[in-house]
Amino acid sequence: MRHLLSTADLTREQAVRILDVAEDMADVATREVKKLPTLRGRTVVNLFFEDSTRTRISFEAAAKRLSADVINFSAKGSSVSKGESLKDTAQTLAAIGADGVVIRHSASGAPAVLAANAWIDAPVVNAGDGTHEHPTQALLDAFTIRRRLHGAGARGRSLDGVRVVIVGDILHSRVARSNVWLLATLGAEVRLVAPATLLPLGVRDWPVEVDLHLDDALTTNPDVVMMLRIQGERMRDAFFPSAREYAREYGLDEERLGRLRADTMVMHPGPMNRGLEISAAAADSARSVVLDQVANGVSIRMAVLYLLLSGAEEGIA
């Protein structure tokens, strides 16, 4: 595989391989010199057509730890705001000599378009496209779960039998989609929780169970509870009556937190709306692995950049 566009493309072996390489990358962060010379002389372009702080910084840190040169491109203040097309932008990057492109775009499928065309001959990493996918987020979530469960013995293992509950705006969430495909591939049992207005039409065909009420899902003894961000703009579109009602029905408040096992992980892809989908008590509790997720994001992105950019062919085998 030359590009990372969707977690649905990954076989179980490939997914485990990425997680294993990320384990080796994580070790680098504990050393005196937190840098590897592996991608010296390679240029990675962060092509961000949509605002993002943590994903862009995470990819930038990952590329720099592998000694790659990083060019950050954000649509604001670029020729894109003057109407330049994706094709022209890509050809410009090719002319500059980009060896890898990390792209975030508000249109679902933009990374796939970039990968499928001959505008630029470089591996493409999807850093979030519309409501489609955000594969590195799902990989870092799986990595975080595996590490918390198995510690130093995590290498080579899948997530067979791990019960994961994903709560929130499934309809618009690329994080949820990428997680569903990846977690199913790795053998986890996924349960989605959302009001009916925030479930996609085809969800019955997904490899998941679906609950309309969070309290029902919490009775299934989950190992992981992943809270999704409620995006402010969705409020105006009346997918649910009010923020307060959403928080009451679907928020992980202190009382619900108390019903979880002591070792159940609480995850959130960030940025968190404290008091809406997740209470401060849950976000700051010992069950929360939110900061682990951020730290592990760098390791996962190093692994993906290494696998796609370092070799002469094939990328993720």
Partner: peptide, 18 residues
């Protein structure tokens, strides 16, 4: 693995733990 000078000439190698 990550320090080899022939990485870009061969298929991607899987690193091992240090």
């Amino acid at each position: 693995t990550m320090y080899r000078d022939d990485l870009s000439r061969n298929p991607t190698r899987a690193p091992h733990p240090t």
